[in-house]
């Protein structure tokens, strides 16, 4: 900050706050804005994803418990790429059919295989649901610190301006402090929604995972009954 900028009346709009800042503070602010944009993009993405997943699961459960033939359901679902619960069902049914169509003599390992396949698809689904949530967690926890770093740097420069002008009046100190605090504000703006979204989506993922586990157990029980009847 040059002494020319230290005038008794300081323009305090957002743009001048940004433009007057040191380049380190500027880069911190830009990084935090990018992080905030990313966080909100992930949040929108995830919100749509969860809404879609919930709707698809509801739809699938309705179809599954409607008394429709499993073979028929499998045929309709395997035609198009399915997700979450439908994918679980398709994976289990594929394993079942492969065993029966292969003309296997023993069904001893079938139950375990189906369980394992369903576990794999559950973990794959959960991974898909909670992908990028770590970004939210990172921004939520590191954002304030990054903003604080910008603040510390800005206050350092404002102290340097005090030393340069040998004057501790508010007019000398205030602009530097204001732009420095602006960096912390940016960090908080990025971090607070990130933390909120992270908590919300983590609980959503847990809910979805529990729902998939429940379905997998139920389907496994049904298939186990079938195996016992066949065997």
């Amino acid at each position: 900050m040059t002494p020319a900028e230290i005038t008794p009346s300081v323009d305090m709009s957002l743009l001048t706050l940004f433009l007057q800042a040191h380049w380190v503070v500027k880069s911190v602010m830009i990084g935090l804005i990018c992080a905030s944009i990313w966080v909100w993009a992930i949040a929108i993405d995830k919100w749509l994803l969860f809404r879609r997943t919930r709707a698809a699961s509801d739809q699938f459960e309705q179809a599954f418990w409607s008394g429709q033939s499993l073979e028929e359901l499998y045929r309709t679902l395997s035609a198009r790429p399915a997700d979450s619960m439908a994918a679980l069902f398709v994976a289990a049914m594929r394993e079942w059919k492969r065993t029966f169509e292969g003309g296997a003599r023993s069904f001893a390992g079938l139950q375990q295989r189906i369980d394992r396949v369903m576990d794999v698809s559950i973990s794959r689904e959960v991974e898909r649901l909670e992908s990028k949530l770590l970004v939210l967690a990172t921004v939520g926890s590191a954002g304030p610190f990054i903003g604080l770093f910008g603040t510390v740097w800005g206050i350092m420069t404002s102290f340097q301006s005090i030393a340069a002008s040998k004057n501790t009046s508010l007019a000398v100190v205030a602009p530097g402090i204001a732009e420095a605090l602006f960096a912390t504000a940016m960090g908080l703006i990025a971090a607070i929604p990130a933390t909120i979204f992270y908590n919300k989506f983590t609980s959503e993922v847990n809910k979805q995972a529990a729902r998939l586990e429940g379905f997998a157990d139920e389907f496994s029980a049904i298939l186990s009954r079938q195996i016992d009847e066949n065997g």
Partner: peptide, 17 residues
């Protein structure tokens, strides 16, 4: 940020000596 630029035009800080 556009809204912020328009609305957050903090009054110029005039410090009386």
């Amino acid at each position: 940020f556009g809204i912020g630029l328009v609305t957050f035009d903090a009054r110029p800080m005039v410090v009386a000596p």
